[in-house]
């Protein structure tokens, strides 16, 4: 096993552990914390199914954002949809044999890199050019966009310009997942390509900061009481556990 391979093996395990453990912890905290009052932004659905539909619209077509600002919507949606396709396309490195539909999206899916990069560039331009958005941006907000652009560009370079050795990369990744280094076969070395090293280093960084950054919006949206509550306060009494203690104030 080369030093490079050992380093990345180590980094991937650490980054995956941080990503999984801390995101799970956040989700657990969100799930445990009550929303003591009914605060859906109305008009809101009056049934669970209706809420599920509202949520699906929020995460697939960014409904509220569409009402709000067409430019952010356009760039944001292009970026996220591109990202989604890119991640689906990446599944082929982690599963063997590759599922039919993952294979199916490969040929056109690779252009999703451009969607991602164009969307991100648009968002970055807004962040720099629009005085209101500039005002609310911290350095981390700019850096997050730059990080994702760098991941996208390095990835696209491999796809369109300077191919890497996908076969040994895949073998390396599946080896990591199956703990091949502990077996006799051992862990395949990952390709020693600069662009790939850059790509993977940035991906590791992204995984590590995910649970501590605004990227928590991805799990967060599902827990937002203004979006996930059913509008039925008159029909169904809604009381948080901590508020039950206060209920004893009540005259009866």
């Amino acid at each position: 096993m080369s030093l490079l391979t050992a380093t990345f093996a180590f980094l991937f395990y650490i980054a995956t552990a941080i990503l999984v453990i801390f995101v799970a912890r956040k989700i657990w905290i969100y799930a445990q914390t009550p929303a003591p009052l009914k605060i859906p932004t109305t008009p809101a659905p009056t049934t669970r199914a209706g809420v599920a539909f509202r949520m699906v619209k929020e995460v697939t077509i960014f409904e509220s954002l569409f009402k709000s600002n067409k430019w952010i919507w356009l760039f944001g949606w292009i970026f996220h949809f591109g990202l989604f396709l890119v991640l689906l396309r990446h599944l082929r490195y982690f599963i063997d044999p590759v599922w039919g539909w993952v294979a199916f999206i490969q040929p056109f899916g690779k252009y999703a890199a451009f969607m991602m990069i164009i969307g991100l560039a648009g968002l970055l331009a807004r962040r720099i050019l629009v005085d209101r958005v500039r005002y609310i941006s911290a350095p981390s907000d700019h850096l997050m966009l730059l990080l994702l652009i760098a991941i996208g560009v390095s990835g696209a370079l491999m796809t369109f310009v300077e191919h890497t050795d996908i076969v040994s990369l895949k073998s390396f990744l599946i080896g990591l997942m199956t703990f091949a280094w502990a077996t006799e076969a051992g862990l395949t070395n990952m390709p020693n390509d600069v662009i790939l090293i850059v790509h993977l280093s940035l991906v590791v960084l992204l995984m590590i900061i995910f649970p501590f950054s605004k990227l928590l919006h991805a799990p967060g949206v599902f827990f937002s009481p203004t979006r996930n509550q059913v509008d039925n306060p008159r029909e169904q009494r809604h009381v948080a556990d901590w508020a039950k203690k206060l209920d004893s104030n009540k005259a009866n």
Partner: peptide, 22 residues
Amino acid sequence: NKKYRSLGVYLDSCVKCGACTD
């Protein structure tokens, strides 16, 4: 933050997209 889920979720989730600014 422990009593109101809205608080933690909202404080963590804002991406500073700017859609609300106007």
